[in-house]
Amino acid sequence: MKKIILSLIVLFLLSNNLVAADGNVVVIANNSVSVSSINSATLKLIFLGKKNSWSDGSKIVPVTLKSGNTHEAFLGAYVQKSSSQFSSFWKQAIFTGEGTPPRSFKSAAELVAFVKNTSGAVGYVPAGTSTTGVKKLKVE
């Protein structure tokens, strides 16, 4: 019984990384970003506005998709929130003056174009999206 409970706890703790592991989401960044990999805890802090600078001190500019499966998968896997919870989090920030939400895009192509042209930008797109001109970050 103890083993079953322990297994369930481990499975639960890992469950939020299952989406990341299946490779449906690709994290991309502007070529100016000096890192080539990023961990999921750092991604969470970035998209919740708690980490604003890359390790070299340059400004982080997070961007998101407006909606869709990739948006839900990314938030669930790395930010540990549903899209509604993510939206509520940023509504609170807006109406307390504590921050403005990441800029969002209707399509992956628009997001890629913005990341390509914006120093320090980081975002995500569905696997298979053309990512010419941006770098893919490996998520650890």
Binding site: S88, Q92, F95, T96
Partner: peptide, 19 residues
């Protein structure tokens, strides 16, 4: 002048959309 952090949802009390 800024919101006083007294409790989990203190800053939500005037933000109807966030709850």
């Amino acid at each position: 002048r800024f919101k006083n952090p007294v409790g989990l949802y203190a800053k939500l009390r005037d933000v109807d959309m966030a709850r």
